[in-house]
Design a protein around this nucleic acid. Structure first.
Lengths: 121, 121
DNA sequence: ACTATACTTCGTCAATCAACGAAATATAGG
DNA sequence: CCTATATTTCGTTGATTGACGAAGTATAGT
């Protein structure tokens, strides 16, 4: 499969685009993305794995916590340009801005609180 | 569905990316794309329709012939940037360059010849 | 060591998708 | 008008996908 195809496949889903866009403001813990999206942890974990395999995000594990960030420094121009395209294009979308607002609140809580009750975000 | 998602879905397939990239050198007739890809006409027609519905290409019908070109002048920035991303990223792919070579030969034949025998390309 | 917890992997189900061939549509040419 | 032809639409089929919950892994705290 072409690299472009792999990247496009990773981007070809509303939920994954929201997850990726949520990282625009900086690194997030998986539990914060789960709280944002309101989906099952297993589902979100899978989505992040797909983004990771496409090279669009980078993962950092600290104890039990997993952090993801946009792969803005990727050696692949295709990845960097895809990220630019996504960030530019999604900025004007209603859902994405709503997410940004919700994220502001999520970021203010300690991770433990967020992980304790995802729905309480 | 987000506009970005629709675009990414349209790009999330090797065959469709090849079809789109083939338009990089200018407008093509559907029969030329069929000859290039070596797939059933109905399949190629469907792929072009998907690209069209995502706004990535524009269609022009002249008699029985259908011509497609990249929608480089699209009013949607998301579309224009997606096209730039694709063109930039696919240029270095082996298959795409092979296709470009094959296209050179296809372009030299009259459309009637190409349409008469797709496999003869 | 034992337990709680953060995340991932796996199995399943319904929905979507790409491919094809057959049939439909539409246009050109006799 | 009638036929040939370029493309599209439709129906089918096998493969992929996204969702979930259950089970597994790994780490922190007691």
């Amino acid at each position: 499969m072409l690299l472009c195809t792999r990247i496009a496949k990773a981007l070809a889903d509303d939920t994954r685009l929201r997850a990726l866009a949520s990282l625009g403001g900086g690194e997030l813990c998986v539990c914060q993305v789960i709280a944002l999206l309101g989906l099952a942890p297993s589902t979100v974990s899978r989505h992040m794995a797909v983004l990771d395999q496409a090279g669009l995000v980078e993962k950092r594990k600290v104890g039990r916590w997993a952090y993801y960030r946009m792969a803005r420094k990727s050696p692949e121009p295709a990845v960097r340009n895809a990220l630019r395209w996504v960030v530019d294009s999604l900025g004007s979308e209603r859902v994405i801005r709503q997410d940004a607002g919700k994220l502001e609140r999520i970021r203010q809580k300690p991770l433990q609180i967020t992980a304790r009750c995802y729905a309480c975000a």
